[in-house]
Design a protein around this nucleic acid. Structure first.
Lengths: 158, 158
DNA sequence: CGCTTTTCTTGATTCAGTCAAAACAAGGTA
DNA sequence: TACCTTGTTTTGACTGAATCAAGAAAAGCG
């Protein structure tokens, strides 16, 4: 099942980052190409379809190494496990659905970080302005019409 | 040690939110007045100085109830335990130090949510634009001059 | 082909937060 | 004032997510 092409690109990227190329790392990279905002767990699922023996820990290792090498960007939305994405060169932002957790990229106006300056930096040396748009994705907004429901807040339900 | 005044204000706020007033809840509220970006754990420490028997769980309960009642806002910066603040009426943002974790409020230009619109909302019904400025606070920036160090990324250290 | 270094596996461990049920207290009411 | 209902607190177990550590295995150089 020639996955050579995608795999070659992945190998090249991994090697270019100064990391050794292994089957599981290729599979991790490929998984992120297919699922641009996957959790470690989701990546693990996908990787196991290719290299069945891959442990969760290896996935964490690979993702951590990729992130450290700048191959991958880590995003950690409040209340969700962390996710990883391959878009690292532009400074883009995210739309996150408060109902289903879907994550969608939003292009940044300026394209470089920090794209935004605080009204008063108060002595901070600001490196990144991270913008997260929270709301309802189209499907959830549609179904929310009939279900007024409690969507957002994580209060007690007692 | 008359803390009556602060305590009265806290009681009023709690009661106004439709919640019963208890010693530990007052102490939780007072703790947040004194420490505007405290973790649940930090709040617990402070509360125990007033009501020694208070359990961590009660603090979580109180904070969760406050948040659900709109008395308190919850912030969850990537890589840090969640924090709570009393400023809920304006839509302000945060400066967070990547080195020491210090959190500082930044006024929002517009003052209401969402203060910012995505370049392309892609069908989302956006409710909030959450802006987090990551960088080095003044003290950390000063000490970073002599220590080039690895500050940010959570890569493996092996 | 073998050696060195990196990576993978296994398994334990931590941290932060949640769940659930029984004991207890707030505050309205008789 | 005493009671009663409902909301709050405590205790303790439990989960999910991620990290740490050490030995086994493989990558890729010479």
């Amino acid at each position: 099942m020639r996955q050579d092409r995608t795999t070659d690109a992945s190998s090249a990227a991994i090697r270019a980052a100064g990391l050794r190329v292994t089957d599981s790392r290729r599979a991790v990279y490929d998984a992120l190409r297919a699922h641009p905002h996957a959790t470690a767990d989701a990546v693990h699922e996908l990787v196991r379809e290719v290299v069945a023996s891959t442990s969760p820990q290896s996935v964490y290792n690979a993702l951590g190494d990729f992130a450290a090498a700048g191959l991958v960007r880590r995003i950690e939305p409040a209340g969700h496990p962390m996710m990883f994405e391959l878009r690292v060169d532009d400074n883009h932002h995210h739309l996150i659905c408060t109902a289903c957790g879907a994550v969608t990229d939003v292009d940044c106006a300026t394209g470089h970080a920090p794209c935004l300056a605080p009204s008063d930096a108060q002595g901070y040396r600001v490196v990144v302005a991270e913008v997260t748009y929270w709301g309802l994705c189209a499907p959830c907004a549609a179904s929310a019409v009939r279900t007024p429901a409690e969507t957002t807040s994580t209060g007690r339900t007692s």
